Computed example of a mutant assay.
Amino acid sequence: MSEAQIRAAARRIYSGTGDIVAARLLTTAPLEMQARKPPYWQVEFDAWNRPTLYLSPQTGELISRRHALWRVFDFAWMLHIMDYDDRSDVNNPLLRVATWSALAMALAGAWLLLWSFPRRRKKA
């Protein structure tokens, strides 16, 4: 599809009031679309949360949509799972080390809590 057709399709799909800022045919995937194989069209709108639509170059159908709040969530997810490269590996070595360290500290804390209180003996 041509850029004009993609802009028309994006305008039909987008329900906001912002204008189209840019429409680009991408051959390399940006970080937010790493799970999808390019090529696809990226159409950016001028609105408060920077909405972006990704459309199929063959059919013009919506592949995905992204916005600023989604990007904030993606950043928080990256910090949460400690995968700073791909943001998708929830079983990486750094996360495993942090998990086992936290478990060891919790068990040590429970043992220290029990050990710190002297046992009271019953009087005969």
Rank of each mutant, 00 (worst) to 15 (best):
D19N: 14
D19Y: 06
D19Q: 13
I20Q: 04
V21M: 06
V21T: 11
A22W: 00
A22V: 02
A23E: 01
R24V: 15
R24H: 07
L26T: 10
L26E: 09
L26W: 04
L26M: 08
T27G: 05
T27D: 08
T28N: 07
A29M: 00
L31N: 10
E32C: 06
M33S: 07
Q34F: 03
Q34A: 11
Q34L: 02
Q34T: 08
A35L: 03
A35S: 04
A35P: 01
K37Y: 03
P38M: 07
P39F: 05
Y40T: 11
Y40E: 10
Y40N: 10
Y40G: 10
Y40D: 07
W41M: 13
W41F: 12
Q42E: 15
V43K: 05
V43A: 09
V43S: 11
V43Q: 08
E44A: 14
E44F: 03
E44Q: 14
F45E: 03
F45Y: 06
F45P: 04
D46L: 07
D46K: 13
D46W: 01
A47D: 15
A47N: 14
W48Y: 01
W48C: 00
W48T: 01
W48F: 02
N49Q: 02
N49G: 01
R50W: 00
R50A: 06
P51V: 03
P51Q: 02
Y54I: 12
Y54H: 12
L55F: 11
S56H: 14
S56D: 15
S56V: 06
P57W: 12
Q58P: 10
Q58G: 15
T59K: 04
T59R: 07
G60H: 10
G60N: 12
G60K: 12
E61A: 14
L62G: 04
L62A: 05
I63M: 12
S64G: 09
S64L: 12
R65G: 06
R66V: 15
R66L: 15
H67Y: 10
H67M: 08
H67R: 06
A68I: 06
L69W: 10
V72M: 14
F75K: 12
A76M: 08
A76R: 02
A76G: 08
M78D: 09
M78G: 08
L79M: 11
H80P: 00
M82A: 07
M82I: 03
D83I: 03
Y84L: 09
D85S: 13
D86S: 13
R87M: 06
S88P: 00
S88T: 06
S88M: 08
S88D: 09
S88H: 03
V90Q: 05
N91S: 09
N92T: 03
P93K: 05
P93H: 04
L94A: 02
L94I: 01
L94T: 01
L95W: 08
R96E: 03
A98D: 03
T99W: 04
T99A: 09
W100L: 10
W100V: 11
W100M: 08
S101A: 13
A102M: 14
L103K: 00
L103A: 12
A104Y: 02
M105D: 02
M105S: 11
A108I: 02
G109M: 02
G109N: 01
A110M: 09
W111V: 11
W111C: 02
W111I: 08
L112D: 00
L113H: 05
L114R: 07
W115Y: 13
W115K: 13
W115E: 10
W115S: 14
S116F: 07
F117K: 15
F117D: 13
